[in-house]
Structure formats: structure tokens, C-alpha cells
């Protein structure tokens, strides 16, 4: 499978290990990535909360660039995925708006390509394909699959059910892990407030950690650099709200999959996390 690759701003910096693990696992699964030359920021929440037209135009420029390559595009960052997929949907539903946005970008997008989330990319080959690549099953791991908001809402672009999605669980089970049933898998982590209003974001983060701990998880799997930053680096601050706190490693779905597929911790960037991931490595053996 050949795909245009849209890394997004975070994967160049704070989520470099996500970038590496996606590329590593993708290649193992036979995906050929072609990074979009000169991609620009999707606009993120700052864009769409400021102006609808701006949000659409910033996303549409990147969609047009991928279209020029003639390839469907995969965006591993959940925020980028949501912005690109939603822009595509909104433009297709409204021809006059579409024309207007094409006029603003000066780079017409014709709607001939699709936007894929990382989960869709991983599942497109089927769970049997994943199983066939597993050399070190994640036995002993109890994973809380965390979707956050961006992958499952709004309805037009959701990868699975908005309240109790199961697609990440499917992948994790194929990798030999046990998944826990828990309450906060599609709650928002508050990332958009983490910089501007930390005192509001920290309780939101702690609620999610509390739920994962209560469910008996020994790690969290996520597929979003913003969620990861919040749940991993800000865990140090969130733990003061938790009575029975124990460190809860937060790994990208592709890092866990990479481990199962025999990749090394260094290649997968496990050392780049704030919460120690050594406990996970020991369990996997």
C-alpha cells in the first residue's frame, strides 16, 4: 500500500518517537510512505476556533498537495487526522464553500483522495496480517486503549463508535495484549487548555488516569501526540489528585505494536517518555 504521509508539527518535535514508530511498523506491514513535500500545519484547534474558512483553507492546502501526488493520505496525529478528514467532508458537502476555499488557497483540491487515520491504516491489512508479524506477544500487558475525542468525534469522521470504540482493542489483542474495559476511553484530555489554563487541564487528565488505574491497566495506549503529552509529561502534576497513584506508562499504539513485532526499545523511542516504560519492557520480556 502506498500512502502520502502527513506527519504534522508535533511529530517533528515533541512526538518524534511516534513518527519513528509509525514509520517502522508501517514498513513492516508493507506500507510505503511518501511524505508530502512542503506540507504545512493543519491549523489545529487554534485554526477552527478562530475562523471556519481559515481552518478549511489550511487543511485544504495539504489535501491538494496529497492529491497532486495521487495518493490517499495518512495522518498519524489524531488532531491532524480530524482536521484533514473533516475539511474533506465539509467541502464535499458544500460546493459553493468548496469553490470559495479553493479560491483562497489558490491550489484547487478536487476531492479525489481520502484521509486515513493510523488505526484505519493498521487495520486495512486485517488482524491476521498483524498476528503474522508478531514475534513477541504482549502477554501480561493490561492495556487501557485511549482514543480521546479527535478520533471518534464528530460523527462524519469517526473511526468507530463515539462512546465505546473497539478498533484499537482489536489491534492490541492481535498483538497478544489483554485490554481492559474502562470508562474514560473517549473522554477529552483537555490538551487545548493545557498551555493556557493548566489548572483546568490537570483535573481532566487526572480523571482519565484514575479511571485507567481503577480498571487495573498497567499502561495506556494512545494514538495522538497531544493526548500523549498530556497523559505522560503532565502525569507528574496530575498525580496529586490521585489517592492510589502508581506510575502509568503511556505508549503510542505503534510503539506497542512495534515491540510485539520484535523492534527494539531504542528504535521505538521508549526512552523519550517521561513516565518510565521499563516496567512494560520487563513484562513483555
Amino acid at each position: 500500500m502506498r500512502l502520502a504521509y502527513y506527519p504534522g508539527c508535533s511529530l517533528e518535535t515533541s512526538a518524534r518517537e511516534y513518527n519513528h514508530s509509525v514509520q517502522l511498523v508501517g514498513r513492516l506491514m508493507g506500507v510505503e510512505f511518501h511524505e508530502i513535500p512542503d506540507w504545512s500545519c493543519c491549523g489545529a484547534s487554534a485554526g477552527h476556533t478562530t475562523s471556519r474558512l481559515l481552518a478549511l483553507a489550511l487543511a485544504a492546502r495539504n489535501l491538494a498537495l496529497a492529491e497532486e501526488m495521487g495518493l490517499d493520505v495518512v495522518a498519524p496525529c489524531a488532531a491532524c487526522y480530524q482536521r484533514l478528514a473533516l475539511a474533506r467532508h465539509e467541502l464535499a458537502a458544500n460546493p459553493s464553500l468548496w469553490e470559495r476555499v479553493n479560491g483562497i488557497t489558490g491550489r484547487p483540491f478536487n476531492g479525489t483522495i481520502r484521509v486515513k487515520s493510523i488505526v484505519e491504516m493498521l487495520l486495512s491489512a486485517g488482524t491476521e496480517k498483524i498476528k503474522s508479524l508478531v514475534v513477541r506477544p504482549l502477554r501480561g500487558l493490561k492495556v487501557a486503549a485511549y482514543y480521546g475525542c479527535l478520533l471518534v468525534r464528530p460523527r462524519a469522521i469517526q473511526i468507530d463508535d463515539a462512546e465505546n470504540p473497539q478498533v484499537m482493542e482489536k489491534i492490541l489483542r492481535a498483538a497478544g495484549a489483554e485490554v481492559v474495559d474502562w470508562t474514560h476511553k473517549t473522554e477529552c484530555c483537555g490538551a487545548s487548555l493545557a498551555v493556557s489554563n493548566e489548572e483546568v487541564a490537570i483535573p481532566i487528565i487526572s480523571r482519565i488516569l484514575k479511571a485507567a488505574l481503577a480498571a487495573g491497566a498497567n499502561c495506556i495506549a494512545c494514538a495522538c501526540p497531544l493526548c500523549h503529552f498530556n497523559l505522560d509529561i503532565r502525569q507528574a502534576k496530575a498525580k496529586r489528585f490521585l489517592a492510589n497513584y502508581r506510575p502509568l506508562p503511556v505508549l503510542y499504539l505503534t510503539q506497542l505494536l512495534g515491540l510485539a513485532m520484535g523492534q527494539g526499545e531504542r528504535e521505538l523511542g521508549l526512552e523519550a517518555h517521561f513516565v518510565e516504560t521499563r516496567s512494560i519492557l520487563k513484562m513483555v520480556g
Binding site: S40, L53, R61, R107, A272
Partner: peptide, 25 residues
């Protein structure tokens, strides 16, 4: 320390296109 902070911006080509989007808007 973890190599997650870039000291200089990554500038793609085509920043004039981005500027045009903002200006038109």
C-alpha cells in the same frame, strides 16, 4: 534533554502560499 525541542523552525517551501491564505482571509 530528550531531543524533543527544536531551536530553529522547519520552514517548508511555499510559506508565501500560507501568507496568501491568511491575507485573503
Amino acid at each position: 534533554r530528550k531531543g524533543k525541542l527544536k531551536l530553529t523552525p522547519t520552514r517548508p517551501r511555499g510559506t508565501e502560499e500560507i501568507e496568501r491564505i491568511f491575507a485573503r482571509l
